[in-house]
Design a protein around this nucleic acid. Sequence first.
RNA 1: GCGGGCGUAGCUCAAUUGGAUAGAGCACCUGACUACGGAUCAGGAGGUUGCAGGUUCGACUCCUGCCGCCCGUGCCA
Length: 634
Amino acid sequence: MADSSDPIALLDSAFRGATAAAFPEIGDSDPLITASKQAALGDFQSNVAMGLSKRVGKPPREVATAIVAKAAAMPELQQIAEPLSDKSIAGPGFINIRLKGEALAALLSAMDTPSLGVPAPDVKETIAVDLCGVNLAKQMHVGHLRATIIGDALARVFERLGHKVIRQNHLGDWGLPIAMVTAKIAADANSGKINLDTLKLDDLDKAYKQAQRECTADEAGLAAVERFQLGPKARAELEEQVRGAKEKLAAAKLTLVKLQSHDPEIYAVWQRIAKITVDECVAVCGRLHATVRAEDTAGESSYSNELAEIVDDLVKRGIAEESDGALVVRLDGPDDLDDRGQKITEPCIVRKSDGGFLYATTDLAGIRRRVRKFGASRLVYAVDARQSLHFQQVFAAARKAGYARKPNGENAPLRHAGFGMVLGEDGRPFKTRSGDNVKLTDLIDEAHQRASAEVNRRSAALPEAERDRIAEVVGVAAIKYADLCNDRMKDYVFSFDRMVAFEGNTGPYLLYAFARINSILRKAQAEKSIDTGPGAPFRKAALHIVQPQEKTLALAILRYPGALKSMADACEPHRLCGFLYDLAGAFSSFYDACPVLAADNESTVLSRLRLCDLTGRVLRDGLTTLGLPVVERM
RNA sequence: GCGGGCGUAGCUCAAUUGGAUAGAGCACCUGACUACGGAUCAGGAGGUUGCAGGUUCGACUCCUGCCGCCCGUGCCA
């Protein structure tokens, strides 16, 4: 019937034509087709008349009447929509459109393909997604949760739409803090205190914090002792601390130099630390059902020998200039605007006055590599919103330097998909009772544990091993969905209690809907001997969209390709979450009102079974695209 | 100081980017036939969208000015 199964696209085309025919002097104009909010009004609506009113100098209802007259006569529209008339015009000039049941069935059939109605992209892009962003020698904690979950979801949606995705885990593995811990580990290994071969990330995490403490001179404490005359003992202790810290810091700086010159012994220790970190990171991401592999990791160290060259390049071409001994790229020119078209007042510092490079320099190198070496046509960064200014500076500097320029001469779009903080139920940053960051493994464990209690209670009949596997999936789905379902930019409140209540708008509710669908298909096979295999006849059965719940479900299913596109365009996973929740809700209502296996005739049974199957495949596909694991039964 | 973000039902969040009576979930209340999984469904109650103006057919959305919270702001990453 149509080359597209998206009703909005079909209506857009028809109303665009009708509008042009009614008002040739206007030329092409967007018919503003949207799904109706209230089913009572219609399925879709065009809001073009109100906007056009002023341009053609006629009252909006008159404009709507003229467009309706043209549209009503179009065969392509007659085929899919109920006849239009003056009664289709409501309020100030809304044009309400209702689809025919047969048209819905035909559209669903057209969509019922392996791609589920998602068209191949006009141009296949290569998109680099920055995600995860862990640090050497540190456990993954809540601070990495959103960068991993959101970044993975964005990577998945781009892949789903047919693009090539390059994941980049920008590992913080270089610089003085890293040298501090490396120096400590090397010293401890030399003195036999630790064994490099059996070292765990937990040990590294402790060593990191300790090294940090040991290298930080408590000058404030010493000053306080002097000011308040706290006595010789306290004074001696603090003087000792400050002297020790200065020694350790000097040693760390020496280690940094050794690291940078690839001193065999220090470099080997550092590599060992890096391996332990990355292995653990990959394992945790695996538990989180997020795709981050070792080969997706590009440490800051991997850019270290490009930084001097980049800065030279910037200076030579007059892009960077000296300022107070540092080298900066000024971004106050007319072309140096941020994402919102605002001026950037602060310059981007690319080299410190002591000659050292900064993370801005590394990020510039990252942009250059992603565009030039990997051929990325678009860059997306799933990084904390607090780094917004930093990215606007780096992006503007990269554009200025031409590092974002694609082979065709255009700049690759650079996008910071920032996100808000994870808060505890007290509204403050989510921490443990003792004030530490919550480790992701602990977070997953607790979700798993809480899910176990629910699964054991509700599904006692399932084998224990399966219940445990289900509980882990449910726990991870609960964590991830809770994160993805709100507006990325906002902070959100992390609550196990709400997540594992499993009621309402939660990951488990979506998994449950999926499990119920599978249950029907299993039962169809087992009790009614209906073949439900891959090429089974019911998958081609005629669809009858009759009951209101069937119609609502059909309209929901058809929105799927648009929901994916919307999520990808805005880099906002909560849009797909909202769609899936609507879909699951539409299915639940359908399930409640429309018997499938017990329907009163065979034709209805097969039609509804096919509707279930299609819903299930869309649910699975959508959940997978968000990065949520699914189970067949729970 | 300057820049940015946020403020929506008791609580947690939406609102197709300017569209119709601002929607969900939790909690609260009322219902659901010995039908496919009650982790469900149908319904009720709950709102001056921080405040005050403005723009227009129409504003949670855009503009201006305030109030409150958070974040960032030249040599950490």
